[in-house]
Amino acid sequence: MIIEVFIPEHYDPDTAYPLLLLNDGEDMFGEGSWNMDRVLQGVISDQKIRPVIAAAIYNQGQRMNWYIPYEDRWITTNWGPYTPNASEYAQDIFDYVIPYMDENYSIDTTEVAILGASLGGLISTWMGLKFPEKIKYSAGLSGSLWVADYSIFSEVEGSYDSGQKFWFDIGTNEWNYYVPLYRELDQRGVIPGQNNFYYEVPGGAHIPSDWLQRIHLPLVAFFSSMENSEPESLEVVLECIPSQSTPGLYFRRLNPIVILTNGVEYSLAHTASYSVLSGEAGLGTEGSFKNNPQTEIEILVEYDSLSETVNVPIGWCP
């Protein structure tokens, strides 16, 4: 495996640093890339996160083989053949990358994170679910969780009681429905807002420029320099999301986004409560709703001590 390493300014070899693993390492550091070295140093210098050491792992042209854990006929038909070697990729990280970093740098092997986008987000989330004893934090930005008909949703098993944290997000311009994974983790005791973060990004697209606008959020969620963080404000975004598979079908949603005192923002989905104040609407438990577009409705969204009333005007959303 080929890696590039980021070391924070004022590196102290007598201090053990969390280790951040970055998929698609070719695209991570330097100008013309994600510039993650600058991003990391920026959030460290601003004291938004504790200093970390990062290892960017090159995919070496093996993205599909290394990052996809499952057989998927659609991928084979549309993208070409591949061999699902996610388990081998993970094992190489455990056998070679982490030991190399431990031998050459001062890292805390109990605080290992992995982050990636798209297929890199899929493998990050998969490794966090499958190896909680080795991966403490996992972040998937626009992760391709749809692979093999969302098979990853069934991977939530075992124990996550050692402080594991999960971050996954999706833009509404690429929308897939990831709330079930959010709920599954919640039901396993991975607490939303503490260890479990799902962010439904209004208008977000499947492009690096959009990922970079929010890349600091999982970093702060994992490595915040604040000891405690509490809900500070609530914004409810009214969404009309076109189906990716059925032309003319739209999903009506309330997306309540809470902002914590450390700056992390994420969607509440099923953790908020919803009630109709006026008009008629059928409410889902996670923010979805059905209504007659020819009538006006008001919906109250509540979470903790925060609340917001949302007005749905006549004629909104086809």
Rank of each mutant, 00 (worst) to 15 (best):
S154G: 12
T15S: 00
G279V: 09
D46G: 13
I75F: 11
N65Q: 07
I297K: 08
I3N: 02
H270Y: 10
K134I: 00
S305F: 13
V179N: 01
F29I: 07
V312C: 02
S151Y: 06
S144Y: 08
N228Y: 10
S307R: 10
F168D: 01
R252V: 04
E157S: 15
N291A: 15
L40H: 08
D46F: 08
M64K: 15
I3K: 09
C240Q: 07
W74K: 15
I107C: 02
Y303E: 04
E71I: 05
Q187A: 12
D161E: 13
Q213S: 08
E155R: 05
R63P: 11
I7L: 15
G284P: 00
E280Q: 14
A56E: 09
G248K: 11
S162F: 00
G30L: 09
Y160N: 09
I299A: 02
E88C: 02
P99L: 01
W66F: 13
Y198W: 07
Q213M: 13
S245M: 14
Y17P: 00
D108Y: 06
C317D: 11
E230A: 06
G32W: 08
S154C: 00
Y274F: 15
P242A: 07
M101S: 06
L238E: 07
E103Q: 14
F131E: 04
V43G: 03
G263D: 03
T76E: 15
I49N: 03
